[in-house]
Write a protein that binds this DNA or RNA. Structure first.
Length: 959
DNA sequence: ACCCTTCCGATTTTT
DNA sequence: TCGGAAGGGT
């Protein structure tokens, strides 16, 4: 592909090894070729060894590829390069800490040490588990932060925040914040003011109010603020005002955040301490300690610094990685290679500004690092920019299309920031340009895509470049279908399967942490040994309460229905049949269940696993959160389906970009967590708990609401994703959309191709290789140490204890709970959706509604209402509670949403129960009410009459 | 301005 | 389920 003789840009990069370089390397420009040759030039100098040169990559596989290609072109062999620092930032940091990291924590004031036995936790779910454990202890030790706990929706929110701060170089010390960390948390008013002014500019020469003022016309709507919030008119100015006052910017920005900062600080430092005590680090902490060490310890820094530093995929680096790269440079022989248009990893803390504002950031970071001591020596004004301009992959037409993509608005009115001035123009090297850029729209999008593929294969109109550069008709293997989400890819594969279409998914699926997998595991355990761990899950699912389950497990007196099902399963010939029956029983027929079925079947078929081993296999899958890697086998002549992220770095003759529908390229939202860090406004809290007034207790933070509206929604990364997708193509691109095409689809120039989807079923024999469209890799590696429970036992212990306590004080209290499935069923049935009853509870609902106001009897699974601190609590699975005393029946529906939202939907739900229950408890006074757990208030609901219910069933319309 | 109701969207993946 | 946003009525 890449010409062995470097072109001008590549040669400039390869030959100039001294000094500071920023290389713009667009798609298909032979970047890897140039970097590896440059590396060769560097280490082939007589006085330079591989250990003097750092080549940082983004992934391990990229590092491996680099090494292999260097070996091909230099005097060094693979063995000599085995230990060379050609690696990811993370693994390099790991190495630094292993060698010099023992006392690194002391620089933050921590007494703990990093030792050889300190592990790296590479599974986020295991870390989440550990963090939960940590946070539980933290809560007990720090009652002073109660107001923060009450607004947090989950501890995971804080872990996310900590990770983000770590990636930005904001670290805590035992005394406060490391270096200038606190200023990041406070934010940057000047930078904020600029954005504020930008959205506060009146429009139409001052005749129309600013975007911001318009946006705030609904200020306070659906919100509850504390009394210090200004009124809407105070905030926006009177009638006729065109923009917000200047003072508003300062007013919303400046907020007392001392308590918030100290809360976050304490959680952060204590979590670091916890991790070190437990002898582990996460990826972020690896970089955190490496950075601190390099900053504080001059000896280590000198030892660790390189004569040459090259960073590949620079657009994917985070702020801390940029700074680490600088600290690791002993000279200014520094070379960053990347393409801002391909920065699509912000969720992994990649910061596109590292490459877009390279010079500014370099100057800024160097100054920061040199604040108190001379650490790095860079002069940003000595920067040489190199542009790689020759594209060896795509035709000129594809390149033109990609340039359009990067500036295409994502919604009707969006103004795109990027302009083509920032895009380095590429020229194509393709042998010919017969490019088709087409678009198809059809309601049956999946079928339409498959039909299109059939149309393309073997068709000379879609010729691709053959081996000798001559055109040849395309085959299945030349085509890739890209999607934004995994889900869409799986759906497509599902449809393809129906037609025996040669199509293979390429990417990862977290298969085992799904309900179907857990239930299957439970039934396998029951089959194997009537294991309690299996029965508990099955019974809980049916709706038995904890004490009932305990009783059943003790006496082995299993209910007749599931026991019969177990016996039925025992008669199944194969594991596949068992799995299918279990999934059918619970109504799992979606694609995910099918993949699970496929996986189980193929693992069982292709290995010699016994049932017991299969159980262990699934258990490991759940414990490790195993992503089942599903890959196209290379030899198959089949279409590849993958997410755009997975496709980065790859190339295909023909690309179909599917699911170009409304909402499939979502805007980057400001996040929904209560406590968040945001550039440039710093650390902010969106909800505030306060008991000052009786109700409600949780208030919205008006400043946060205004601040958010000053930072516009961004589609920049979605555009870059689009760019990445298009630039994978060598010859042709097809956009596909369903019923509601998005703006990208509408705006991009493409020939509209009418389509009448009819997929020709293929002869399976012809594609025997593709028969099983994926292979499954058995999870490897050590089994995690976290004990795994399908049921959260602490919750049940808690419930049990409280039940005992309540029973002692209120022996009269009795209640009933329904499983949420019955709840859902009832609602669906009343609303005349097509549902078939599958258990006794559901059949009773059917009988009841069909025969209103007929008789209804419900067997009584009994439980007790649960009270904690005088408040009823919502416990997952118990949605509705019926509270029964001698002469009174209370039907209660728990809601966490305390301040807003209509009761109408709830009324429909509750009404069904109301009628069921009042039939049941003839002679008692029955009431229905909503219980708001946020503030403890309770509201009586007037249930629909039987007539209204009946009419609902008949008309199917809302009241 | 306030209240009630309905609608919409729940990513991506590597270290 | 559950928040955010927006539309409609008074």
């Amino acid at each position: 592909m890449t010409d062995p003789t470097p072109n001008d840009g590549q040669r400039e990069l390869i030959e100039n090894t001294k000094g500071l370089y920023l290389v713009d390397a667009g798609p298909g420009t032979g970047k890897t070729f140039a970097i590896t040759r440059r590396y060769g030039t560097i280490v082939d100098q007589p006085d330079v060894e591989p250990e003097d040169t750092l080549l940082a990559t983004f992934t391990r596989s990229a590092a491996t590829e680099m090494k292999e290609r260097i070996v091909d072109h230099s005097t060094y062999g693979l063995r000599e390069l085995a230990d060379a620092p050609i690696q990811t930032f993370h693994s390099h940091c790991h190495d630094i800490l292993r060698e010099h990291g023992y006392a690194a924590p002391t620089h933050l004031g921590l007494d703990e040490r990093i030792t050889d036995s300190t592990r790296l936790i590479d599974d986020e779910l295991i870390e989440a588990e550990l963090f939960r454990e940590f946070f539980g202890g933290f809560r007990d030790d720090h009652p002073e932060y109660a107001d923060f706990y009450r607004v947090l929706s989950s501890p995971g929110e804080l872990l996310d925040l900590i990770r983000e701060l770590a990636s930005k170089g904001v670290f805590p010390t035992t005394e406060g914040w490391y270096r200038d960390g606190e200023s990041h948390l406070d934010g940057d008013f000047e930078a904020f003011k600029e954005r504020f002014d930008a959205v506060n500019e009146p429009r139409n020469d001052g005749r129309k109010q600013s975007v911001l003022r318009d946006d705030l016309s609904r200020f306070g709507r659906n919100k509850t603020y504390l009394s210090d919030a200004p009124s809407k008119s105070e905030l926006r100015g009177g009638r006729g005002t065109k923009q917000l006052g200047d003072d508003v910017a300062a007013d919303v920005f400046h907020e007392d955040r001392e308590d918030l900062k100290s809360f976050v600080h304490d959680v952060y430092i204590e979590y670091l301490r916890f991790a070190l005590c437990r002898n582990y680090l996460n990826f972020g902490f690896l970089q955190l300690f490496a950075f601190v060490l390099l900053c504080e310890d001059r000896r280590v820094r000198r030892l660790a610094q390189f004569e040459y530093v090259m960073v590949d995929e620079f657009q994917d680096t985070s702020e801390i990685q940029f700074k680490l790269a600088l600290l690791l440079s002993g000279t200014d022989n520094f070379c960053a290679v990347g393409d801002w248009k391909q920065s699509i990893y912000s969720f992994q803390y990649a910061d596109v500004r590292n490459i877009l504002d390279f010079e500014d950031r370099l100057a800024q970071f160097s100054t920061d690092l040199n604040g108190d001591a001379e650490r790095v020596a860079f002069d940003a004004s000595d920067l040489t920019r190199i542009e790689l301009r020759e594209n060896y992959r795509s035709t000129e037409s594809i390149i033109d299309l990609s340039e359009r993509a990067i500036v295409t608005p994502a919604t009707g009115g969006e103004e795109v920031d990027a302009s083509l001035d920032d895009v380095v123009e590429l020229s194509s090297n393709a042998a010919f340009d017969n490019t088709a850029v087409e678009e198809i729209t059809h309601e049956d999008e999946h079928e339409a895509v498959l039909s299109t593929i059939q149309e393309i294969v073997g068709n000379d109109d879609y010729a691709v470049e053959g081996d000798g550069g001559d055109p040849r008709p395309p085959e299945y293997r030349d085509i890739a279908v890209f999607t934004r989400t995994r889900d869409y890819g799986r759906e497509l594969l599902e449809v393809a399967d129906e037609y025996d279409f040669p199509m293979a998914y390429d990417g990862g699926i977290e298969l085992f942490r799904t309900d179907p997998a857990k239930l299957l595991l439970a039934w396998l355990r029951i089959l194997d040994s009537d294991a309690d761990r299996g029965w508990a899950v099955v019974l809980e699912r049916i709706g038995y309460t904890y004490d009932e389950i305990e009783h059943i497990l003790e006496t082995d007196a299993y209910p007749s229905d599931p026991a019969a099902f177990r016996d039925e399963l025992r008669g199944s010939e194969s594991i596949g049949a068992v799995a299918r029956r279990v999934l059918d029983r619970y109504g799992y027929t979606d694609d995910r269940a099918d993949v699970l079925l496929h996986t189980i079947q193929s693992v069982y078929d292709s290995t010699t696993l016994t049932r017991g081993e299969l159980i262990r296999f699934i258990e490991r899958g759940i414990e490790n959160g195993t992503i089942v890697d599903v890959r196209a086998s290379a030899g198959d002549d089949s279409v590849t389906v993958q997410t755009i992220h997975t496709a980065k770095g790859l190339e295909y003759p023909i690309v179909i970009l599917a699911n170009m529908n409304d909402g499939s390229f979502p805007p980057r939202s400001s996040g929904s967590s209560v406590i968040q860090y945001q550039d440039p406004v710093g650390l902010r809290q969106r909800k505030i708990y306060s008991e000052e007034r009786p109700s409600p207790h949780v208030y919205d933070n008006w400043r946060s609401d205004v601040l958010r509206r000053c930072l516009p929604r961004e589609y920049d990364e979605e555009r870059r994703l689009l760019y990445v997708a298009v630039t994978r193509a060598e010859n042709h691109v097809v956009f596909a959309a369903g019923a509601e095409p998005n703006t990208f689809f509408e705006e991009l120039p493409a020939d509209d191709k009418a389509i009448d989807p009819s997929v020709e079923p293929l002869d399976r024999e012809e594609f025997t290789d593709a028969e099983l469209p994926f292979t499954v890799t058995t999870p490897q590696g050590p089994i995690s140490q976290t004990p795994h429970t399908l049921m959260d036992e602490t919750v049940f212990e808690e419930i049990d204890a409280r039940m005992e306590a309540t029973l002692e004080t209120e022996p009269e209290t009795r209640g009933v709970d329904f499983g949420s499935r019955v709840h859902e069923f009832a609602e669906a049935y009343v609303l005349d959706e097509e549902v078939t009853p599958s258990n006794p509870h559901e059949r009773r609902i059917v009988d009841f509604v069909d025969d209103l106001p007929g008789e209804l009897y419900v067997e009584e699974p009994v439980t007790l209402p649960i009270e904690i601190d005088g408040h009823r609590v919502t416990i997952s699975g118990i949605v509705d509670l019926v509270h029964v005393t001698a002469d009174q029946v209370d039907i209660i529906d728990y809601k966490t949403d305390g301040t807003r939202h209509a009761q109408s939907e709830y009324r429909k739900q509750l009404s069904v129960y109301y009628h069921v229950i009042s039939e049941w408890f003839v002679g008692k006074d029955v009431t229905a009410s909503l219980f708001y757990t946020t503030d403890g208030t309770r509201e009586q609901v007037t249930p629909l009459t039987s007539e209204e219910l009946r009419s609902l069933v008949q008309t199917g319309v809302e009241m």
